[in-house]
């Protein structure tokens, strides 16, 4: 089999493989990622196939002869028609007006401010700690009580959006964009320090910096509805219930 055919087959196979999650499991690999994956596949295959001298010539020869060999005239003409048409189609498809909104470039965890004002004072994020965290080891019954109260606060305030299973699938979730964050799994609060989560609860969507945009998130600012103590309890609860640990640094 000529190398160039082999090469094309490999790339087509990779493409099909990358399409499987989307076609069969409704979990499409985002186009932005897929195109880069494909690029890597093309480059790696190309390099592997041309590393040896004969490999390189075996690859280039058919292309060169297509253009130089008089007996390949028919094939050449076909290629010379198909390639420009394909290029034109790609250009057209890229420029065609389209009513889909542009991709959402949004940082889920934008950088927090160094300090913010809530509860009538300025709170420094660097020195902010959860008052209940220490009691987890020192006074477990006090800790459990805080978690239980946190649960109550959660189900009175948060579960409409963040879901009864803390999976981000509350009643309102479908209607919101950006969608409410699941607390389960390792992607969200497991990546954050508690001070960050507290800031998010206190200041909500309105408190996000610009990169949290482009429009406001529906996450309410809870500083007016929950006391500082309640806010810490609900933070403690969402960690405890999902089995996540706040991010911390070994000293």
């Amino acid at each position: 089999m000529p190398r160039i055919v082999k090469f094309s087959l490999i790339i087509i196979a990779v493409y099909c493989l990358l399409k499987i999650p989307g076609v069969f499991f409704t979990r499409p690999i985002p186009a932005s990622v897929l195109s880069v994956y494909l690029l890597f596949a093309v480059v790696a295959t190309l390099l592997a196939m041309t590393a040896t001298g004969e490999g390189a010539t075996g690859f280039i020869e058919p292309i060169a002869s297509l253009f130089a060999d008089p007996s390949k005239r028919a094939a050449r003409n076909i290629v010379l028609v198909i390639v420009p048409i394909a290029a034109a189609w790609i250009a057209y498809a890229a420029l065609r007006p389209d009513d889909a909104p542009p991709p959402i470039v949004r940082s889920i965890h934008p950088a927090p401010p160094a300090a913010f004002t809530a509860y009538g004072r300025t709170i420094e994020l660097a020195s902010l700690t959860n008052p209940y965290r220490a009691s987890e080891k020192e006074n477990p019954s006090q800790f459990r009580a805080a978690v239980d109260e946190g649960a109550e606060i959660y189900f009175k305030n948060c579960f409409y959006c963040h879901g009864a299973k803390l999976d981000g699938a509350g009643h309102y979730a479908r209607g919101l964009s950006p969608s409410p964050v699941p607390f389960r799994g390792t992607d969200t609060i497991a990546q954050l320090q508690e001070s960050y989560v507290f800031w998010r609860v206190a200041k909500g969507g309105p408190g996000l910096p610009r990169e949290g945009g482009p429009w406001l998130s529906a996450m309410p600012a809870w500083e007016d509805a929950l006391t500082e103590d309640e806010a810490w309890k609900v933070v403690t609860f969402i960690y405890d219930y999902t089995g996540n640990r706040p991010r911390s640094w070994a000293k």
């Binding site: 991709p103 959402i104 470039v105 949004r106 889920i108 969608s179």
Partner: peptide
Amino acid sequence: TPLLAPAEAAALGGQFHPWL
């Protein structure tokens, strides 16, 4: 968190791809 077209975000039901 990949760059998501709105249709993709809707299909995934969030900003994360569960496998990726």
